[in-house]
């Protein structure tokens, strides 16, 4: 289950960044992948649709979304995993 979430999230981010999945490393930041604020909002929408979950994210306070840490690809994967467990469990 966990790796399935990771694969889907990485695929969504890779598509947004127009990169190969292999080039999206867990330690990468969205900024380093060239994803801007609109790209971020679009990625979150894609994640919500893919997992049928609600992601608590407000673009006005990107650093304060304690429930949804967007600092790296890895942190996003972890956040989605816990949301999926919470909302679909």
């Amino acid at each position: 289950m966990a790796s399935e979430v990771k694969d889907k999230v990485v695929a969504i981010i890779a598509e947004q960044a127009v990169l190969d999945v292999a080039d999206v490393k867990p330690e990468a930041t969205l900024e380093s992948l060239g994803i801007d604020s609109l790209g971020l909002v679009e990625s979150i929408f894609a994640i919500e649709e893919a997992f049928d979950i609600t992601v608590p994210f407000n673009a006005n306070e990107p650093d304060q979304n304690a429930e949804f840490d967007i600092s790296t690809v890895g942190s996003i994967v972890a956040a989605v995993e816990s949301l999926v467990a919470e909302q679909k469990g």
């Binding site: 909002v41 979150i44 929408f45 994210f57 407000n58 673009a59 006005n60």
Partner: peptide
């Protein structure tokens, strides 16, 4: 809502804790 720029509680222009 889709744009994620809306506040759920209040409009607080110029305040450090503004959230949309």
């Amino acid at each position: 809502e889709g744009l994620r720029v809306m506040s759920k509680d209040a409009c607080r222009p110029f305040s450090a804790n503004r959230n949309g």
